[in-house]
Design a protein around this nucleic acid. Structure first.
Lengths: 159, 159
DNA sequence: AGTATACTCCGGTTCTCCACTGGGGAATGG
DNA sequence: CCATTCCCCAGTGGAGAACCGGAGTATACT
């Protein structure tokens, strides 16, 4: 019990976790990015049906994204969601961190770490760093371009 | 419910997850590596107390490591655990994969993925790849050396 | 042989988070 | 006013994490 709470606080897990939540969020933001030029809001339902995501769940994720300032919402009829920033200004790392609820805790504090533990933690940090570097190297715009390129190919096969 | 089971099978989550389990396992194997030259088995209790790990839990982890062929066990009095291979032959990636229960599933199958989903999955794979590359670039021996180097420094400060 | 020592296998418990569902309320366009 | 759409809060079911405990089994030492 003691050990558990300690480790819980250290937040070692979920460090580089990519769950369903993140995938949904990225998909939603990608969908919003595709409609960014039009300036018209996109509804939850639309995204949900297009990407096969449960709409009530997506709603929550979009709420989080809104609170974090990634999207703007418009209520009422003809309402929906809009990207708050241009796709090329949104780092994918920020999205994942937002949705995955990453809170940094400096583990230097109460618990005394053995030399071995420090080494293992160090290793872990370098793994995290590698993963985050990839995510911070890309923006939503990159996803848009990849999807457009891929879409072209798909269409060619279709014809 | 449907969507959930599908995503569950795809095993998207836990792709790059590093939990308490992995830390314990790495610590245990590191401890065994330090005693590799001696050739004498190390008991669970010893590792557990040295690294502040609940022993009954560590027991389970060592069992999986044994079944995977990372360690050998010796029962009875003066028994304990031994590294099955030399520290420089054990990739850290293999350890984490073993303990985290990574099973690859090729997601190309029943479910039709939208173009957007494919793009997001692709992104995710590159993140995974980056993380795994770090882990596959190091062996237990590297951890041993790091720990020895760090231990030296600690001793110097102590004096 | 007998005993203490260790691993082995089986099970159960508690807790947390994820994925998802649902209901009522508030704003907005027609 | 009213359909539409977002907003907030609340709850459910299941899976896995992180444990604990006991009965069984192999081994060494005397």
């Amino acid at each position: 019990m003691e050990n558990r709470s300690i480790l819980k606080e250290l937040q070692l897990r979920r460090a580089v976790e990519l769950s369903c939540k993140s995938e949904y969020a990225l998909l939603a933001l990608l969908e919003l990015s595709l409609n960014y030029d039009k300036g018209e809001p996109v509804q939850i339902r639309q995204i949900a049906s297009q990407q096969n995501i449960p709409d009530r769940y997506l709603e929550q994720l979009l709420a989080t994204l809104r609170r974090a300032g990634f999207v703007k919402s418009q209520r009422g009829a003809k309402g929906g969601y809009l990207l708050a920033q241009a796709p090329w200004n949104v780092l994918l790392l920020d999205i994942v961190n937002c949705i995955e609820g990453l809170e940094k805790k400096d583990n230097a504090g109460d618990a005394v770490l053995t030399t071995e533990r420090q080494v293992v933690r160090g290793l872990w940090q370098s793994v995290q760093a590698a993963a985050q570097e990839v995510l911070s190297a890309h923006t939503l715009q990159d996803l848009v371009e990849q999807r457009n390129a891929k879409h072209q190919v798909d269409l060619m096969y279709y014809i």
